[in-house]
Every structure is written in C-alpha cells, then in structure tokens.
Amino acid sequence: MVRAGARRAGKGRHRPFWVELPLLVGVALVLALLIKTFLVQAFSIPSESMQNTLQKGDRVLVDKLTPWFGSEPERGEVVVFHDPDGWLDGVAVDPPNTVQKVLGFIGVMPSAEEKDLIKRVIGVGGDTVECAGDGPVKVNGKALDEPYVFPGNTPCSNDGRGTFKVTVPQGRLWVMGDHRQASADSRYHRDDRNDGMVPEDEVVGRAVVVAWPVGRWSTLPVPAAFSTAAGAALLPGPAAAVAAAVPLVLLRRRRATSGADAHP
C-alpha cells in the first residue's frame, strides 16, 4: 500500500530540463508571434529617404497595439505601411537567408520579404496639403515649421511633381520623407490608383523608437508644428484617453472606499 506522503513526493518530482526544453521553446515562439502580430514589430530602414531622422540600416520598433483600440494615424507621425501601389517596383531587395526568414517570421528581426515603406504623415483625411516652389509645406493654409527636414533640403522640390495642392480623402494619408530631395513619396505617385495617397488600412503601425544601433537609440515623437496644423489641437487617441481616465477612476474608488470606512 502506497502511503499518501509517497504519492505527494512523486507528484512534486520535476521533469528533466531536456524534456521541458521543447515546451519552453514552443511557448517562446508563440509569445514572439503574438507580440509581432499585436504589439510591436521591428523594421529595418531601407533607404536615405527619412534622413536625418532615420538613417539607412536603423532598426525601429513599430507600435501595432494602439490601432486595435481605434487609434488612427495622425499628422507628424512616422509610420510604416505596405506598398500601396507599386512604389517599390524595380527596387532591388537582397534575398534573405534561412535564419533571417525564421527570425523575421517571429518578429525578432525585420522581415526581409515584406514590401514596406516608412514616411512621415503630413496630411490626413479632409486636409488640404500644398506646396509651391521651395516651400514651406502648408496644411489647411498654415505653414509647417519642419526642423526635421534634411539639412540643405528645401521643404518642397521645385520641379513638376514637387509642386502640388491636394485634398486628402477620408481614410487616406499624404506622406513625405524627411529627406525631401531624396524621397519618392506621395508627391511622385499621384498617377497611381490612390493618387499618391496611402490607404489607412495599409498602415502597419507607428514607428516609436530607434532601437538599433545602440548609439542612435531615440524616441520618435510628433513634432510640435503638427499640434495645431489643422487649426485646432489634435485630440488624443482612444488609448491615451483610457490611460488618462484610469487614475481618475482609481482615485474616485479610493475616496468612495475611504468614505464607507469612515461611516459604518
């Protein structure tokens, strides 16, 4: 007859590490895929079109979470988006090796097979964006102060396509690179099916941090010039509103609890 103490000892016995290792690896892969799909993904900067904000070869982390709470791209944000209509046609891409494919699939490294671009949002649905000659860029009649434009560049390009005046349809974005004279952005794709605009549903997420190389670590905030670009302050997204409301709710609950304790 087996004693109860012996049975408990048998149940508490740990399995060898080599038996648990495949399970741990499987859990890690599932977590990595969930993070890549719903939270954060790494992307590599493929060109000089966003200098000096971003350099070719930089790795940025892209926020994919807030769109799940209804947040939409806003003016001034640096966003990653899928190629909307052949913007990358003819651009050579080095084929990834097997390790890069695996690490890219789980989100540890930027995917080398996805055709994605990164630009700054200048106009959103309903905005009128224009520029003549060397600039400045105007959004709804207000000139933008753009200190992030590449040194020596003008805000616009004084050529046929660099001069424009467009009204952005709802659900679309007008995007431009910070290296204005080296960026084939919305200005140069106005003959595509989207009139050079980027559909919001093609946006992967907002780039929020330069994560690599370590010496270039920095955040990517929205420049102050965009806070009143449309003639009114930009409203915070739903996620920010929820975050702001939580402390108020907790404070109210704490006061209510204190009041109940004081009056039995």
Results as ranks from 00 to 15, higher is better:
residue 54 L to M: 04
residue 89 D to M: 07
residue 94 D to M: 11
residue 114 E to T: 10
residue 32 A to F: 11
residue 178 D to G: 00
residue 215 G to K: 08
residue 134 D to S: 13
residue 23 L to Q: 12
residue 15 R to S: 13
residue 47 S to M: 05
residue 225 A to W: 06
residue 252 R to D: 11
residue 125 G to Q: 02
residue 147 P to D: 01
residue 180 R to F: 00
residue 11 K to T: 10
residue 182 A to E: 09
residue 123 G to K: 02
residue 101 K to E: 13
residue 206 R to W: 07
residue 259 G to W: 05
residue 190 R to N: 06
residue 238 P to G: 12
residue 244 A to P: 04
residue 84 P to V: 02
residue 80 V to F: 08
residue 100 Q to V: 00
residue 50 M to P: 05
residue 233 A to S: 14
residue 191 D to I: 06
residue 174 W to H: 04
residue 59 R to D: 05
residue 110 P to W: 09
residue 129 V to F: 03
residue 234 L to A: 15
residue 193 R to W: 08
residue 235 L to I: 09
residue 13 R to M: 13
residue 219 T to K: 11
residue 16 P to E: 03
residue 223 P to Y: 09
residue 162 G to V: 00
residue 182 A to C: 08
residue 103 L to F: 12
residue 90 G to R: 01
residue 39 L to P: 09
residue 145 D to K: 05
residue 53 T to V: 00
residue 263 H to N: 14
residue 38 F to R: 03
residue 248 L to D: 05
residue 215 G to P: 01
residue 179 H to I: 00
residue 253 R to S: 13
residue 250 L to K: 04
residue 212 W to I: 00
residue 240 A to K: 11
residue 158 N to P: 03
residue 28 A to P: 06
residue 181 Q to V: 00
residue 30 V to N: 09
residue 98 T to V: 15
residue 121 V to E: 09
residue 22 P to Q: 06
residue 202 E to I: 04
residue 31 L to I: 13
residue 189 H to F: 13
residue 263 H to W: 12
residue 170 Q to R: 10
residue 194 N to I: 02
residue 163 T to W: 00
residue 247 P to N: 05
residue 153 N to K: 05
residue 221 P to Q: 07
residue 112 A to Q: 14
residue 203 V to Y: 11
residue 35 I to S: 08
residue 93 V to N: 12
residue 258 S to R: 15
residue 105 F to L: 12
residue 134 D to C: 01
residue 15 R to V: 14
residue 215 G to I: 12
residue 75 R to K: 12
residue 107 G to H: 02
residue 193 R to C: 07
residue 71 S to C: 09
residue 93 V to T: 14
residue 254 R to C: 10
residue 118 I to C: 06
residue 82 H to Q: 13
residue 118 I to L: 06
residue 109 M to W: 15
residue 32 A to W: 06
residue 202 E to G: 08
residue 183 S to H: 02
residue 159 D to C: 03
residue 130 E to K: 09
residue 235 L to V: 15
residue 86 G to Q: 10
residue 155 P to V: 01
residue 29 L to G: 08
residue 192 D to W: 10
residue 215 G to L: 10
residue 15 R to P: 08
residue 83 D to V: 01
residue 17 F to R: 09
residue 120 R to L: 07
residue 229 A to R: 05
residue 115 K to G: 08
residue 142 K to Y: 11
residue 42 A to P: 07
residue 4 A to V: 11
residue 71 S to R: 13
residue 37 T to L: 13
residue 2 V to G: 08
residue 80 V to P: 01
residue 190 R to S: 04
residue 16 P to V: 10
residue 65 L to F: 15
residue 242 V to A: 15
residue 225 A to I: 04
residue 193 R to M: 13
residue 31 L to S: 10
residue 155 P to L: 01
residue 233 A to Y: 10
residue 57 G to A: 03
residue 262 A to P: 05
residue 254 R to V: 12
residue 251 L to A: 15
residue 220 L to V: 04
residue 238 P to E: 08
residue 81 F to R: 04
residue 204 V to K: 09
residue 141 G to R: 03
residue 262 A to S: 14
residue 198 V to K: 06
residue 206 R to V: 15
residue 173 L to K: 05
residue 41 Q to Y: 02
residue 16 P to M: 07
residue 204 V to M: 10
residue 3 R to V: 11
residue 149 V to C: 01
